[in-house]
Design a binder for these strands. Structure first.
Lengths: 156, 156
DNA sequence: ATTGAAATATGTTCGTA
DNA sequence: TACGAACATATTTCAAT
């Protein structure tokens, strides 16, 4: 494992370990080790290196938000006035719990966000009350995800 | 915990457990138990119920794809010919490893996808070779994420 | 970088309340 | 639901190669 051009170079064993855990973070080190044909201690040591390299950002339990009543996902393109500090707008977006992604993007929108709401009424409230209240937001363009067909991490 | 309108009703303890694990899937049951003030066995039992209810979809190790050379994230609105079967297009999108999300959406686009590429050249190849090759794709509109500022799950 | 073994911590089950 | 105790697995460390 080496640093080349701000990139971490990993070998095939590292990839195998990461792919296993990216699929299931609770897969045991020993099980992974048996699959590869090395000992648990070796896998453990590699994982420590990958963590130290900053490659591993943590692990998350994935839940199905629909079953908790969050049934409306939407994408929102946000137009910001030129005069406004974009970081300030992002700071305020962070305060809105329904905002789960936020990107600076090329194109007409200044900021592009993904939001998760209970229903369309909840979405309307977030758009009209929370997001429109942010200083510098001139208007928004919203499209709703009717159905998410693919949701995965990159296969490395 | 009850099923009401296809929704799982959970109590505050369940929420605490889930929020801990959604933030860090490897946090130990015992540590969570100590935080709540119940035993590990009780937390364990609740987790089994939440799993049985289908609320838990698994756990994922999160990595920083930038450090592996994946530095260009983009969103692509896809226009599909009316005649074409959308599920067929999704099936082909699934074959493209760079496609990490795919949604049916309201608005002008039929399908909206998120893709992760090494660089702009790689992105161009995916767009021009892989995505344009899909039957029924008439044109696409792409915008690049210059910087992702927020990336999180919903706080329950 | 990898091993085997030891020590520690955690997950899991179960009878009982 | 929750508890506590017993048991089974997993993680973590380390000296040696």
């Amino acid at each position: 494992m080496k640093l080349v051009n701000e990139t971490v170079v990993i070998d095939g064993i590292d990839k195998t370990i990461l792919n296993f855990l990216m699929d299931d973070a609770k897969k045991s080190i020993l099980e992974i080790a048996r699959n590869i044909g090395i000992t648990g201690a070796a896998v453990h040591q590699r994982l420590r290196k990958l963590e130290k390299a900053g490659l591993i950002e943590g692990s998350k339990l994935m839940i199905n938000p629909r079953l908790l009543g969050y049934k409306t996902m939407a994408f929102v393109g946000v137009y910001l006035d030129k005069a406004v500090s974009n970081p300030q707008a992002v700071k305020q977006l962070r305060q809105i719990p329904e905002v789960i992604e936020c990107h600076y993007t090329t194109g007409n929108w200044s900021i592009f966000i993904k939001i998760l709401c209970r229903d369309n009424e909840h979405l309307m409230n977030v758009l009209n009350k929370d997001i429109q209240a942010i200083e510098g937001v001139s208007r928004t363009e919203t499209f709703i995800s009717l159905n998410q067909q693919i949701n995965r991490q990159i296969k490395i």
